[in-house]
Amino acid sequence: MSETLDLKAIERKAFRSTHQDGLWDIYISSVVGSMALLMFIPVRDDYPWLYQVLAFLGIGAGYLVFWAGKKFVTLPRMGQVKFGEIRRKRNKTLALILGGVVLIQVGIVLLTAGAWAIPAWGDILQELFPGRSATDLLVAAVGALFVGPSMMAIAYFTDFPRGYYIALVMTLGVFLMIWFWQPLIQVGAAFLILIPGVVLFIRFLRQYPLPPAEARHA
């Protein structure tokens, strides 16, 4: 009986089917790729706004692809579904965790600003991490630690197994990008996330043709 009617498995399969279009992967890759542009802001004083604008345009373009893809490609093929209370609770928990992560990030930024503004703090940090490489290592580790666990939390709470792979690629990308001060590493990470997304999107289009008009307009 349990083999033929595993309700948890039915619910999980139904939920995971909503991630089969690869659009999340494509959107996340645009965010990861745009991070590479943001990285140049502190070191390039000439036209720093251009990098910011390009980075946010990149994220915006990624979101536009995600939104349009969901609305015009996925929904007509996959249909609409609203999940139950358990999923809503998981989403709320995820929002709380991510909110906490953002607060910690704000705290770190304030601490960094404090280190710049208050020489005594800066001296303590300099003593703890002497030399540029040690400071870079610290920044790289902190950056990677924010990105990786946050993405893992998203993967866990949204039941999105590919999210763990994305978390690993993002963590390595951010760490190596900062450590070697090489934005191309992050661009590479973005491609490693984008490629499976595009493959999944093409597979989704093949697997889910448009249903008959009476079903779409029922």
Binding site: I10, G79, P211, A215
Partner: peptide, 26 residues
């Protein structure tokens, strides 16, 4: 079984989940 584990869904989603045709489902 599908409707029991979710809140609500439209015809297209249910057709995809169950493999039923529109007429049969209807």
């Amino acid at each position: 079984a599908v409707l029991y584990v979710i809140d609500s869904a439209d015809f297209t989603f249910l057709m995809n989940q169950t493999g039923m045709t529109w007429g049969n489902l209807s």
